[in-house]
Design a protein around this nucleic acid. Structure first.
Lengths: 205, 205
DNA sequence: GTCTATAATTTGATAGAC
DNA sequence: GTCTATCAAATTATAGAC
């Protein structure tokens, strides 16, 4: 069962349990009974509080997407110089995901299965951090010769790929390279500083 | 319906249909009825040929993993110099995934949901390309001063991340950056050459 | 081998007592 | 608000004719 403060309301218990189950199994794979068990209550309560599975799922998905995306603000809405921004983003974002390792697979997986659906909803739900400023900064730095020429969206994708993907590919990677769980954690720890350095080496003149 | 040569056997039709549906919806989200419809036959045939959903799924998963992984041989089992290898891998692997854009999400997603299960099976099913030689090559090139010092597994992860992740993050990326489908394809096309260059810039002295 | 019809099971949802 | 018991729908699986 999910651990929460002892006086957690039933609604909180349900949300915590649903988060755990949905994120691990996805919308299609999650079972209402399993969520109820995880929350330590019975199935009827789920419907009492959230009407049906779809509404409960949407609540969790929204909550999850918010956990995952707004962190992009680190990189999008700061005034720091480019290299500093990259270092901070990689390090902090890896920490966020380490706390919620299944989150990217869940959010991106569900978005892949139902792209239109989320586009409409999320567009209005919470204001997305807009990458425009960051892309402009890259363009400017390149034009001024501070970094090698590179298309801004490509660089943005490179930064995010190397930060998130290792968690999504974890089972494959551990199996291929032959890493224990502890060794994988060490690998991730190294990455917190080394990946930003790698990026910077690629673009600095 | 899936397009196949006209004289495809029923078994082939089923496999092609199941591949399409499972890869898009995952084990939990796929419906036997939908697979049957896609194959242009009836549900009973699925059970006649593959006994049950789980066995059909395993067949497809194995087939999918084989499509995805053995391509790693490009990078693992060649004698070419490092930079050449990287260029070839990025370009060819992007092409493979472009033909099967849902494949990585499917394979990695199912592996995440059931890591132990696949570890045992796949270990014996087909011999995995072993990364040892490639990792050694990186180590050697670094020691000889041909490239900047870098931990080999980190470099390997960087190469793969930037190649595969863009496809998994496609809906999120198009939404955030505001790209049309055509623009995304163009983005991927650029990537075929530019990402290898990016990597090489990061490690060359 | 292939089909239709149907059984069996799983699972989301509700009724109604407390 | 919370529970038990139950229903209804969806979905996997099988029986049996051709």
């Amino acid at each position: 069962m999910v651990k929460l403060k002892k006086d957690a309301t039933t609604e909180e218990k349900i949300l915590a349990a649903a988060q755990k189950i949905f994120v691990k199994k996805g919308m299609a794979g999650a079972r209402m009974q399993e969520i109820a068990d995880e929350a330590g209550i019975n199935k009827a309560m789920l419907h009492y509080y959230f009407r049906n599975k779809e509404m409960l799922f949407e609540m969790i998905f929204r909550q999850s997407a918010q956990k995952l995306f707004p962190r992009l603000n680190i990189i999008f809405e700061s005034d720091a110089p480019l290299f500093e921004k990259i270092e901070k983003f990689v390090s902090e974002y890896i920490d966020v995901i380490r706390e919620n390792p299944y989150l990217p697979m869940f959010v991106l997986g569900e978005m892949n299965r139902n792209p239109e659906g989320f586009y409409k909803k999320m567009k209005y739900e919470f204001d997305f951090p807009k990458p425009d400023r960051f892309l402009q900064q890259i363009k400017k730095d390149a034009k001024e010769g501070k970094i090698k020429p590179i298309r801004p969206p490509q660089l943005l994708m490179n930064i995010i790929s190397g930060t998130i993907f290792p968690f999504m590919a974890r089972p494959m990677f551990q199996m291929h390279i032959g890493l224990s769980d502890a060794q994988f954690m060490e690998f991730i720890d190294q990455r917190k500083t080394e990946y930003a350095r790698f990026i910077i080496d690629a673009i600095k003149k």
